[in-house]
Simulated scan of single mutants.
Amino acid sequence: MISEVIKDAEERMHKGVDALRKEYTTIRAGRANPSVLDKVMVEYYGTPTPINQLANISAPEARMLVIQSWDRTVLPAIEKAIMKSDLGLNPSSDGTVIRLIIPQLTAERRVELVKTVKKKAEEARVAVRNVRRDINDQLKKLEKEHGEHGASEDEIKRAQDDVQKLTDKIIKEIEQVMETKESEITEV
């Protein structure tokens, strides 16, 4: 029973780290990465649709994205959606493909992005701590049940120590992910 609770904690904490990594891929760091367009929605036949469901996005150069739509009639809508987004990118279309030149980040923009990265990391740490709290509550309930499905005080104490070690390990992982993204942004 206790091992199931700890396994559940580990899965939930790792989901938080994975969500943070995914969130970081959408933050533009001066290098062309197709995932920066993941949050951009295009009005397609009255339905907001992600760009990657309407076109092929590639990065042929370090500072350029090329968007090749499967339906050429949607190119103007894709251009408009990119301009409306908060990415600060200006699309240029030749009627068949859209090219996005990724500009160098300004010093102010880098500082802004680093703040965003730190904020997202703190949100992930809070989520991990919330999981720890939930798991510790579950363990306390197990201790109170002390009958056939319950657990002894020593077992609960050991399990809580394991949960704390797991929490520390996951938070360290979050720190590493954050530092990697931060250095990617501050790299000139």
Rank of each mutant, 00 (worst) to 15 (best):
I2V: 15
S3L: 12
I6M: 06
A9W: 02
A9P: 01
H14F: 07
K15E: 07
V17E: 12
A19F: 15
L20V: 07
R21G: 11
E23G: 00
Y24I: 00
T25L: 13
R28W: 09
R28H: 08
A29D: 05
P34L: 02
M41R: 11
T47F: 06
N52R: 15
N56Y: 01
A59D: 10
Q68L: 03
D71Q: 11
T73I: 02
V74L: 13
E79G: 04
I82P: 09
K84V: 07
S85I: 09
D86E: 07
L89M: 12
S93L: 05
G95F: 13
V97P: 01
R99P: 01
P103K: 06
R109K: 14
E112A: 15
E112T: 14
V114S: 01
K115S: 09
K120Y: 13
V126N: 10
V128I: 15
R133C: 00
I135H: 00
K141T: 14
K144Y: 03
E145P: 00
G147M: 07
E153A: 15
I156M: 08
R158T: 11
D162E: 15
K172C: 00
K172P: 00
E175C: 00
E179L: 02
E179Y: 00
E179T: 00
E182W: 06
E184K: 07
E187V: 03
E187L: 08
V188G: 02
